[in-house]
Amino acid sequence: MKAFLAIFKREVKQYFTSPIAYVVLVIFSFLSAWFYAIGFLFQFSEYCEQYPMIQMQMQQNPMMMNQNFPVPNFTDLIIPGYFGTLSIVLIFLVPLLTMRAISEEKRQGTIELLYTYPLSDLQVVLAKYMASMVVFTLMALLVVFYLMIPDFFSKEGGVVAWKPASSAILGFYLFGAACIAIGFIFSALTENQIVSAALTFTLLLFMWVVGWAAQGDNIPEQWKKVAEAVSLTNRSSDLYKGLVHLSDIVFYLCVMVGSLFITMRSLESHRWRA
């Protein structure tokens, strides 16, 4: 436990004494603020303005009732898309966050001491993972803060429905946790940070674009099913809409635990590969 704490503390400090955490946080806060503002100021308010007209048209023309023109509701209209965009942003930022976690220890040779201190590989991996999760948690908290802003300014409050919003936040957190765990695999595989980041990015990107096949036309049903099953981003779409399925949560937890397990195994492998 003390060893775990020692590594965890060191890693967190490492993040904030090097520029990495700041770069990631700054990029993320800029992009997340940007997409939030776009969604809120333009898409949502425009729709609110147009809605009375649409309502009138709907009353005159019953055909329009079949089309989907929901009551302007921020939570339903904006949050799923906003969180979907944030997920893509994460795909670009997570490789930066995880690239040096273990590869740098390999490059500097400091891993030799870690291997000979009285501690287990599990402690090493978990402590480092938790430290990365600290940075990611800051990112998630920032998003929560954004969601609170509209309520400050509206008189009635209740712009954001917190029940579906928390499902979205949960989905975002699970998605990020899974991405970081995947990044750890590649960080343990190489001693080169760039290679580690590039491989992580490639895999995350693939797990995003593979989901497009699930929506595409002219694609066989079985393929769509496979695409849906392995896509890391599609899994969160229901959570972002406020629909919590246990299967989605379990999926992300499995990816996370599985990736960390592979990471641990690859750390151990030096003992028999030598």
Binding site: Q108, T116, Y117
Partner: peptide, 16 residues
Amino acid sequence: RKRIGYLPENVPLYTD
């Protein structure tokens, strides 16, 4: 491991 102090060959340290 609890009873050993080890100084590896190239003195790997966390330089920052």
